[in-house]
Amino acid sequence: MKKDQLFTRRRVLLAGATAVGAAGTAGLLAWGSGDKPVRAAAPAAGAPARGVPLKPSAYRLQPLTGYGPPRTAPGRTPVRSEPMLKMTGRGRTMVLTFDDGPDPRYTPGVLDTLAEYDVRAMFFVCGEMATDHKDLLARMADEGHVVGNHTWSHPLLTSLTRRQIRSEMTRTSEVIEDGYGEPPRWFRAPYGAWNRTTFQLGAELGMEPLAWTVDTLDWTAPGTGTIVSRVQDGAGPGVVVLSHDAGGDRSQSVAALRRYLPRLLDSGYHITVPRRQYT
């Protein structure tokens, strides 16, 4: 199959999951009064969501949001002053995100578990990892996951020049488009360190900034049980969970996902991906 034909097939599969578009994410993720976004967590630490007790449920996964073609033509991506960190919407929806990959040692395990439970997630990839593992980007595309930009080399962006930040973002977007079949529409700053330049350049590249609500701190290797507890204790409507599938030994993260994902589903949570709306 030719490369352009393969990308066409992926675009059809991802028509809603990637939802190419720009302005108009208000109503998608949590916004405060006056249409201002909820304040993001401090750098390198997720603001823990208020714990919601897990309760048995008679239903499991519901149809994911974000599927289907756009209603109108996309507009220009707005320049935010803060990243979005929580979804809005009906029901008990949650988003699982995985940073720093793809890593052939751990990413396939994450993808296998998501496939087993027919769940889509978001992967914020680093260009220097993705460039050598485009097969994993292709698998993410084929299985309906959303891929976001997490810079090329995972630097502290607030310490870089505008030119350096642009290079980190642009090179990664090019690799994603080549391997995934679509340019990224979401961006996450390493360490949660944002500034005006990152928001401006991200918008220029058509990307919305997404942070997180619950930080599992799995990169500290606290133990599989601890990671599971952090996700379950922080579970709640609209929560965005931060985990990692690269950047070190992520075997605990892979094992934890296998434990908490079925529990979340059995408790009535809808694990979904965000939708870019059109205005």
Rank of each mutant, 00 (worst) to 15 (best):
V241A: 00
T220W: 04
E177Y: 04
A221K: 11
K36D: 11
V20M: 08
R250C: 09
R105H: 10
D112W: 02
T8F: 12
A49C: 13
R188Q: 09
T226A: 15
L265M: 06
G27C: 03
W212M: 15
K3W: 15
L111N: 06
A221I: 11
M129F: 12
P184E: 04
D178Q: 13
S267F: 07
W194H: 04
P78M: 06
L14K: 02
Y180M: 05
A203N: 00
R250D: 01
T198H: 02
V110A: 08
R276T: 12
A17G: 07
L13K: 13
R259K: 15
V38T: 15
P155F: 09
R50Q: 14
A115E: 07
V20Y: 09
D142A: 14
T172P: 04
G101S: 04
P83N: 11
T158Q: 08
W219Y: 15
A45K: 12
K134P: 07
M94P: 03
A15W: 07
D132P: 04
G109I: 12
A19Y: 06
K36H: 13
L96G: 06
R250M: 10
D99P: 08
L265K: 05
I176N: 03
E177R: 09
L264P: 03
P155W: 03
A138W: 06
D218C: 05
R263I: 13
G144F: 00
D118E: 15
R71M: 05
G144H: 01
T97V: 10
A141S: 01
G32F: 09
D118S: 10
Y67N: 11
R139A: 00
D132Y: 10
L264C: 02
T25Q: 06
F98Q: 01
L205Y: 01
R76N: 14
Q62S: 11
W194D: 02
D178A: 14
R276Y: 02
Y269E: 07
S253K: 08
E168I: 05
M94G: 08
L257K: 04
P184Q: 08
L111G: 11
D99R: 04
D266Y: 03
T220R: 12
P237W: 01
R90K: 11
T213Q: 05
G144Y: 00
G247F: 00
V79E: 14
A23F: 09
Q200I: 11
R276N: 13
E128H: 10
L210S: 11
L111Y: 08
E128T: 15
L14D: 06
P70L: 05
T88I: 10
N149P: 05
M122D: 13
T226N: 10
V228I: 13
P108T: 10
G21L: 04
